[in-house]
Design a protein around this nucleic acid. Sequence first.
DNA 1: CATATGTCCTGAGAGC
DNA 2: TGCTCTCAGGACATAT
Length: 278
Amino acid sequence: MPELPEVETMRRRIAPVVGCKIRDVKRLASHLRSISISPRLDALRRRITGQKIVGLDRLGKRIILELEQGDRIIIEPRMTGLLLLNSPPEQEHLRLIFQLAGGAVRRLLFWDQRGLGVVRLVAPEQFCAGFLDRIGPDALRIKPGFLEQRLGNSRRAIKVALMDQKIIAGVGNLYASEILHRAHIHPASACCKLTPTHWKNVYKSLRKVLAEAIEKQGSTLSDGTYRAAHDEPGGFQHLHRVYQRAGKKCVQCAKAEIVRIVQAQRSSFFCPACQRKF
DNA sequence: CATATGTCCTGAGAGC
DNA sequence: TGCTCTCAGGACATAT
């Protein structure tokens, strides 16, 4: 589930790793099964041990640790991954431990209940050609006209297109529904049917929803896996207007009930009264 | 090229 | 009660 706001919260939370030196990286022996590390752990360890972490960035839903020799460790939490400095929610799904020295913290943990998370090393010469060029700009760094320019001729449904990380990075299933509700646009509207005013509303809603969600430190859903600072749940789930609210009254019009449909094998939620299909 | 579908994973909850 | 089934959705591989 972690989307841009949750990953940004993780980034802020682990900020003290900057300035630390990587002493070792350990994969927990009893949980070798599913974490995906590329290159293999022994090669990764050889390459990163002794390097200092000089930068910490985020692109969409990915965390980027910048090392002093220009290598980057890319961490994708995917569904249930969490980056932590202290104790994990439970020992069982603790996947990876970076042991650190010479800085403010002693370790960085990657915990991941479902094990879909990915950790990989990107060499300096592969960062632009190989990593950046396969992913769109961060959703919070696009200019107002960007979405219309990229999607204005597309026949795809707007909600599916917003979730395409090659277009923009950071919006997933939850926030796509929330953004479109605030923009008054039905999730199945074809991109090419939207007017410049619609695109302006999408842009404004996107910025507003993501900024508010970051401020609330993200959304913790019913599975409870996502944790914000101090291991507390996030706060944005209380502000969801449509996501997982099928059958409940729309908080905006206070009349219609929220409807769930399936698009690209994912649930979409919308208000049939507030959101017009174009 | 653009767009759509299948796959991986674990735990919660439904239904019998 | 305890089993089986379905569902949740990140990103990418493969298919149309």
